[in-house]
């Protein structure tokens, strides 16, 4: 029998703490599958962030460091500068990456740090109870925008992929989604491209993955996926924004 889909070696046996239907679990699996397929498990150091994925070091079956809120790209920089031949990735949410860690992500990208960033965008702060994030959509209800995000008061969401794609030193920037199986598989391909860019020393790579927060969005898991497709994707278009040539085509 051939396993078509199962638990990759780069995931531990530990049961996820994530809420039912949260797509963190899928994105973890995709990262682990890519690391397995590239044969990198034993030469990878991952960096967990703060947010729901703060415990992701329990799930990735490889060397991990847990970083302070938003600082994962700086921590990853420290690791990669000492161990340039190892694969280094960060796994960050939208509050972590686009708000408190905006300086660290911008400058890691500007320096072209040869690391891979997995950026999970679910348009809210999940762990702390669904507060407004820098990626919260205009009008979106959150626990700190109880009447909906008012762009006059709270401004507009940050499109991080578009911002980072303008930088000279970024090698691979893509935004994908997890709202259905086809897009989950596209997400895996993007994550593969990002890790390959790092393997080939091309510089900074990031995949922004649109994800869900059924609990804080107060939706059933299937409805949450539909909300990603019908609302998030309008504001955050799916695209491969940047792919430096010279790599594996």
């Amino acid at each position: 029998m051939k396993v078509i889909s199962g638990k990759p070696e780069s995931l531990t046996d530990k049961k996820y703490h994530y809420c039912p239907g949260c797509m963190h679990g899928v994105i973890h699996r995709l990262v682990a599958e890519v690391i397995d397929e590239l044969g990198l498990r034993e030469e990878t150091v991952g960096v967990a962030s703060v947010g729901c994925s703060v415990l992701s070091h329990n799930y990735f079956n490889l060397d991990m460091q847990e970083a302070a809120h938003g600082r994962a790209p700086a921590v990853a920089t420290g690791i990669k500068r000492v161990l340039p031949d190892r694969t280094v990735f960060t796994y960050q949410g939208d509050g972590d990456l686009a708000s408190i860690g905006s300086a660290e992500i911008l400058h890691a990208a500007a320096r072209g740090e040869n690391i891979t960033v997995i950026f999970v965008n679910n348009s809210c702060y999940g762990m702390t109870g669904g507060q407004m994030a820098p990626t919260t959509l205009p009008g979106q209800l959150t626990s700190t925008t109880p009447l909906g995000r008012d762009v006059k008061k709270e401004g507009y969401p940050l499109r991080m992929s578009e911002v980072l794609a303008t930088m000279d030193a970024t090698a691979y920037i893509a935004r994908t989604s997890t709202h259905n199986a086809k897009h989950v598989m596209k997400t895996k391909k993007a994550i593969l491209n990002a890790f390959k860019a790092q393997q080939q020393g091309q510089g900074f790579s990031m995949v922004e993955v649109l994800s869900t927060c059924p609990t804080n969005w107060k939706m059933k898991p299937v409805e949450a996926l539909q909300w990603v497709e019908n609302n998030m994707m309008k504001y955050f278009p799916l695209q491969e924004f940047k792919k430096v040539s010279g790599g594996d085509q």
Binding site: M1, G6, G25, V26, N180, M185
Partner: peptide, 19 residues
């Protein structure tokens, strides 16, 4: 087709096929 496993957030499904 394993689409169920692809969408499972909890890696709870394993699909095996006879070759």
């Amino acid at each position: 087709c394993a689409l169920c496993a692809v969408m499972c957030p909890d890696v709870a499904i394993t699909v095996e096929k006879e070759v």
